[in-house]
């Protein structure tokens, strides 16, 4: 697949991010400046989700719901949900039960698909718009932006809701991948209209081209939250699977 040399340009209209103890843009500004850290309290107030659905959302699902409550609860627009590992704590529990030959929880099994959180929240939001659920390894954020940008190319699609989320891996896996320091979710609305929000350009650059590896231990979604929260930060470069991604704020 090839990308235009000049990159793709879009606008980020609204955004909301959430992690334990970091629930508003002010919190994230402080986190970005190194003045605030996530807390241990994992509860998120998501009263807008009816109780019988809410009980099926784990911590990760509630974090996602929390961000949607902030910016897009009633927005009935196409959405792209992206997570590298999905509800991995729940998946791990199911796999452990399977290994131990214990009966599986039907409720947890029924939610073990990658689009489960997106599906449940579309029921709660009474939204019948199209949903895409992505998993793209360490490139998730960038592939989500490309997917959403592609959807903006369809007739009658002015805005696309993007949601990216992950939670820490169970200890068994951390020797292979350990890329999620804490549970987090980020939702934002991607628009093609330049007058709506912050304009940005995304480019794919050769691996040897750029050098900034400062953030290699921070997952792209968290780098992106820092990018959105920090006025003085105008560019991020992130190493992907086979190239580097460069995202710049533009006029």
């Amino acid at each position: 697949m090839s990308y235009p040399e000049s990159g793709i340009t879009f606008c980020i209209k609204d955004w909301a991010a959430c992690a334990p103890g970091l629930t508003c843009q002010q919190d994230w500004q402080e986190w970005s400046a190194g003045k605030k850290a996530p807390s241990v309290d994992q509860s998120f107030d998501v009263k807008q989700v009816p109780p019988m659905l809410r009980r099926r959302l784990g911590t990760l699902g509630k974090a996602v719901a929390y961000t949607l409550c902030q910016i897009a609860w009633d927005a009935h627009i196409p959405s792209v949900f992206c997570s590298r590992h999905g509800a991995i704590q729940q998946t791990y529990k199911l796999l452990s039960d399977l290994a131990d030959e214990k009966p599986l929880s039907p409720a947890h099994f029924s939610l073990s698909v990658h689009n489960a959180i997106a599906g449940m929240l579309s029921i709660a939001r009474k939204d019948v718009s199209s949903i895409t659920a992505l998993s793209a390894g360490a490139d998730g954020l960038w592939q989500m932006l490309l997917e959403a940008y592609g959807q903006l190319g369809q007739p009658d699609v002015e805005e696309v809701l993007c949601v990216i989320y992950d939670e820490p891996l169970p200890e068994l896996y951390t020797r292979y991948v350990n890329d999620t320091p804490f549970t987090h979710a980020l939702s934002f609305v991607l628009s093609k209209q330049k007058d709506k929000g912050q304009a940005m350009t995304l480019k794919s650059v050769d691996l040897h081209h750029a050098s900034s590896a400062r953030d290699k231990d921070t997952p792209p979604a968290l780098q992106f939250i820092r990018f959105l929260s920090t006025d003085t930060l105008n560019q991020i470069v992130s190493t992907g699977h086979s190239n580097q991604w460069m995202l710049s704020k533009t006029e």
Binding site: M52, P103, S105, P106, A107, S110
Partner: peptide, 17 residues
């Protein structure tokens, strides 16, 4: 209470256990 069919399966397993 408003339970659904997945709850019935879940409860069936809990009763079995």
């Amino acid at each position: 209470l408003g339970l659904d069919s997945i709850d019935a399966l879940e409860l069936g397993i809990a009763i079995q256990k």
